[in-house]
């Protein structure tokens, strides 16, 4: 970026401490990331609480949005994991709403995007995978490990195939978290770069201001695309969660 006021596309992801806290040598400071996570949770909870507080037979607009999101996730879970999977509905619904609302909050200018940090998305993905592993072991015992043993494989190849399946299973949280993180990060950097073009072009004078219409239009279009991506990534996260939970409920089915 040649402009003197230095448009830095990475700067928006910086984490600042708001309250410095250390407990037993651990840094548990309240950062801007934590603040936006709290805002996300409070906003989601308040929205769902207010929307469903009236419980009218003919729903208001807010209530029908809340009901639609409920139905959306419930159908998704039922399709993927069957009726038994509905006991995981609170988990999937919370994950979906958290990721969706965090993505959408990040779309406001100057706001922090929680899901653009890999540690956040990785923690969410590990939550899903650990739920799958623990529930699978609790429900099926050692039978759960049949997941890694496909049938119809000759005995000599079996160790190889099992190792590959185990690595494939372990790569799930990585790909789940990297996908969400990379989409949000790349989208926000692109937005920032194109907005930076507008600023640095319009500093050049009249010709620059006329020319800056192009990156401005691009930034507007990208904003629309980013809203789509925010929803889509939350949806993909929820769908994959449902599919992984299905493995825990019916291993080797």
């Amino acid at each position: 970026m040649a402009s003197p006021d230095k448009v830095d596309p990475i700067h928006q992801f910086a984490i600042n401490k708001i309250v410095d806290l250390h407990i037993g040598g651990l840094d548990v400071s309240f950062t801007n990331s934590s603040l936006y996570m709290v805002v996300t949770v409070v906003l989601t909870g308040a929205f769902l609480y207010l929307a469903t507080s009236s419980r009218a037979v003919v729903p208001s607009r807010m209530q029908s949005v809340a009901e639609m999101s409920y139905e959306f996730i419930a159908n998704m879970l039922r399709d993927a994991a069957g009726e038994q999977g509905m006991k995981f509905f609170p988990l999937v619904f919370s994950l979906f709403m958290f990721v969706l609302v965090a993505n959408l909050i990040g779309m406001f200018p100057y706001f922090f995007t929680v899901t653009s940090h890999i540690i956040v998305t990785f923690a969410l993905a590990m939550l899903v995978i650990l739920t799958v592993i623990f529930y699978g072991l609790y429900k099926h015992g050692l039978h759960f490990f049949n997941l890694f043993v496909p049938s119809g494989v000759p005995g000599i190849l079996l160790p190889l195939v099992v190792a590959i399946e185990v690595i494939s299973f372990l790569s799930r949280p990585i790909s789940l978290s990297v996908r969400l993180f990379a989409n949000m990060l790349a989208g926000h950097i692109t937005l920032k770069v194109f907005s930076g073009f507008v600023v640095s072009l319009s500093a050049l004078g009249v010709g620059g201001i006329v020319g800056s219409v192009l990156p401005l239009g691009m930034a507007v279009a990208l904003t629309g695309l980013e809203f789509l991506v925010s929803f889509l990534q939350a949806y993909v996260f929820a769908v994959l969660t449902c599919m992984y939970l299905n493995d825990a409920i019916h291993p080797g089915h």
């Binding site: 119809g152 299973f169 080797g252």
Partner: peptide
């Protein structure tokens, strides 16, 4: 994942 555990080898 895990499908074909109870099925034939062609799965």
């Amino acid at each position: 994942f895990g499908q074909g555990a109870n099925r034939g080898p062609d799965s």
